[in-house]
Each structure stands twice: as structure tokens, then as C-alpha cells.
């Protein structure tokens, strides 16, 4: 028992036999996943395969009904305090950015540090400007999200998450809603983040990104993990027929 505890403390994220239902629909089936700190994981699969649902369970945007999810040594249960603790350490970027349209870019970034971390405003702004510089849009700080392009908005969203100094970052199809010309600027930021050793779980179909930064690629279908492997093996030598079919569909056109 003691052994198990220490081992789970070393993991950034641990999913043990996680099951989830939407009403009658069994959306996650016996998911097991261990993520060590600093690991970059790319999750792919057809739509409806449960990949978004799985990473949304990690910060409890979705509840799981069976199994165990342990994030940074904290098990997610009904306990709201624990959920808040986990959310403070886990950043998330969404497909549709979900910036707050009534706040400026800078206010978007300082909101959580000020209200959740109780940081003084001046310090929060300093940190926000630091991260806005890292995503290369400090000059947009006083604009509203509605005045920015999609790519810029997604970079603000990444900066907003980083301002909370998270230990783990979740990306839910961060480039799927972007024009082709803007995908690269977002991926560049994500690659940089990966190179600095951030623990990342990323739902994406950007296979170039997966090859470049992922330690592991996970392929899901029908709520199950079908195959997982390190990226080169995964792309060059897929084992499962379902994986082969999926790869042939997304790579050959």
C-alpha cells in the first residue's frame, strides 16, 4: 500500500480503470494512463472517440463515474476543495479559445492570479506581460479578444493558462478552429513549451507536432485506448488495424 502511494505521487497524472457515461452512452471504457512529470502525450482518434472527454476529466470539467483519477497526488472526488486544488495546478487550452470577451487581453491573463492566487495586481500584470512576450504578442495587451485573430487569441489563451504557473497543461484540439496560416504560430508556442519540460496532454491531429515533441502517442476509438506507442513506432509501424485505417485516412490526402 505504501509502495503504491509513493509511486502514484511521482506521477503527474494517473488514470486507473476510468469509466464514464453520458446517460446511457458509455463514453470512456476502462481507461488506464500514467503520465510522468515532463512527459508530452499526444492523443488522437476519430471524433466521438472520447479523447476530449478523457482530458476534460483530468481537471474535472467532466465527472467520471468509475475508477480513479489522481493528479499531482490528489485524487479527484466530489470534494470541491480538491477539485479547486487540482484546477489551480492544471492549465487548459480549448478548441474555441474561450477567452473572456469583456476583458482585455491583459485582464484575461491577470484575472485568475489575482482572484485565485490572491496575487497583488502589479505583480500579476508583470507576470502576464512576461508570458505575453513569450507568446509574442505583448503589443496586444490592451486590446479585447474580439479584435484579435484566431491564432493570436489561442496564444493569449496559452499565456492566460501559464500565468497560473501550472504543472500540467491540457490542450483540447488547440488548432482545430484556426485558419491554416495561423496554425503554425500556435504550434511554435506549444513546441517551445514542450522544450522547456512542461507536462503536456494534447488532443490534436497535428501529426508533425506529435512527431516533433511527443514522448508517446495514444490512439483512442469508441472510448478505449486502442494503441499507444512512441511517435516513430506509432506512425511507421502501427500494430492495430483500426490505427492503420485512421492513419491512412488522415495522412494520405
Amino acid at each position: 500500500m505504501a509502495m503504491e502511494n509513493t509511486s502514484s505521487n511521482e506521477l503527474a497524472v494517473q488514470l486507473v480503470d476510468v469509466n464514464k457515461w453520458y446517460g446511457e452512452f458509455h463514453v470512456l471504457k476502462n481507461i488506464n494512463l500514467n503520465v510522468t512529470p515532463g512527459e508530452r502525450i499526444v492523443i488522437c482518434g476519430p471524433s466521438g472517440s472520447g479523447k476530449s472527454t478523457m482530458i476534460r476529466c483530468i481537471n474535472r470539467l467532466e465527472e467520471h463515474q468509475k475508477g480513479k483519477i489522481i493528479v499531482n497526488g490528489i485524487e479527484l472526488t466530489e470534494d470541491l476543495k480538491r477539485i479547486d486544488e487540482v484546477r489551480r495546478e492544471v492549465g487548459m487550452c480549448f478548441q474555441h479559445f474561450n477567452l473572456f470577451p469583456h476583458l482585455t487581453v491583459l485582464e484575461n491573463c491577470t484575472l485568475a492570479p489575482i482572484w485565485v492566487r490572491k496575487m497583488p495586481k502589479s505583480e500579476a500584470e508583470k507576470i502576464a506581460m512576461h508570458y505575453l512576450e513569450r507568446v509574442k504578442i505583448p503589443e496586444q495587451a490592451d486590446k479585447y479578444p474580439g479584435q484579435l485573430s484566431g491564432g493570436q487569441q489561442q496564444r493569449v489563451a496559452i499565456a492566460r493558462s501559464l500565468c497560473m504557473n501550472p504543472k500540467i497543461m491540457l490542450f483540447d484540439e488547440p488548432t482545430s478552429a484556426l485558419d491554416p496560416e495561423m496554425i503554425k504560430e500556435v504550434l511554435d508556442v506549444m513546441v517551445e513549451l514542450a522544450e522547456e519540460g512542461m507536462t503536456m496532454l494534447c488532443v490534436t491531429h497535428e501529426m508533425g507536432f506529435a512527431k516533433l515533441v511527443a514522448n508517446r502517442v495514444i490512439f483512442m476509438d469508441a472510448g478505449q485506448v486502442v494503441e499507444e506507442n512512441e511517435p516513430h513506432e506509432f506512425f511507421d509501424n502501427p500494430q492495430n488495424d483500426r490505427t492503420k485505417l485512421f492513419l491512412s485516412q488522415i495522412l494520405n490526402h
Binding site: 484546477r87 492544471v90 480549448f94 474561450n98 473572456f100 469583456h102 484575472l111 485568475a112 492566460r160 497560473m164
Partner: peptide, 30 residues
């Protein structure tokens, strides 16, 4: 208000009242 706004404020760790007061209500009332 789109569901994403609720989710983003949850994901940042804002409590129910803070996310209502700072994110949802200012937009909804407007």
C-alpha cells in the same frame, strides 16, 4: 453565454461565485 466561458473560468480554478461575478454575469447582464 457559451458553455466555454463557464468551462474556461472553472479550468482557471475560479469558484462558482467568482466565475459568476467576474465572468458570467458581466457578460450576461450586458
Amino acid at each position: 453565454i457559451p458553455r466555454g466561458q463557464y468551462e474556461a473560468s472553472k479550468a482557471l480554478g475560479l469558484s462558482y461565485w467568482k466565475s459568476m461575478g467576474l465572468i458570467i454575469l458581466p457578460q450576461a447582464l450586458k
